[in-house]
Amino acid sequence: MKAFFIKYKWIWIGVLAVAAGLTIAFVTGGSLNSAPAPQTATIATTAATTTAPAATKAPAASAAASAAQPSSAAQPTSQAATQPTTRAAAASRQQPVTVKPQATTTAPKPTDAYRTESVPEGKPQPQEPQEQTITPEKHTCTFSVSCVSALAQKDSLPDSVKEVLPDDGVILAPLSLSFNEGESVFDILARVCREQHIHMEYTNTPIYNSAYIEGIGNLYEFDCGAGSGWMYRVNGWFPNYGSSRYAVKDGDVIEWLYTCNLGRDIGGDYGAQTGE
């Protein structure tokens, strides 16, 4: 047996060489295709998004956030238990590095059961889609879908992504359309995509009581790196809650924008939280 291995060692060496070559080719091939490394650790799971920004921005706050995590994991449905996590994340955003865990009591508290932090002054509050009634009253709004930010790194993208990127980055040019009172941004997106024959995929995320847009026009989240995905902007503001909860008003300008870096490249820097 031993003699067998020694006698035919070239077989083993050959097999190992082929395996090593394949591994190296696979690894380098994989890294050549992938986009630059993201700045945050993870946006893969929606549940983890609340703590992800804190972990990278402030070491002190990240300790607080991780300390708060077990309690929120134990009772995820209890509002009181979810508060420390969101508070720590919010505090780290406002006062980085120097903030102590005790100081986080001054941070804004969550306003509802869907982990939404308080909405800035003068911006519309989230409207739960379950409570909305669609009335026949007609309004008009402007609607567009764009992925201009993805064009910057077009050369480094795999062919399967290049294929779906329009040359000018405009998937749907600004369109004036009428809608019924009570419709949400998501309702309008779904309707327009069907009418205009644009592909769109979403999943419902009950924890945020909203739809999550995975891809529009076959351009999907994570197609341009781990920090990429679809966000929406209404009248120049990126709402900090999901598109199903944004009740559209007359004259609203709705834009769906593709981000390659958690919104930083399109001016919606909420970290991972508004990746709806």
Binding site: A190, R194, H197, H199, M200, E201, Y202, G215, N218, Y220
Partner: peptide, 15 residues
């Protein structure tokens, strides 16, 4: 639900 050729839609809205 990926794919450029949409045949029809499921009742819940995905293609």
């Amino acid at each position: 639900h990926r794919g450029a050729t949409v045949l029809t839609y499921f009742p819940w809205g995905n293609p």
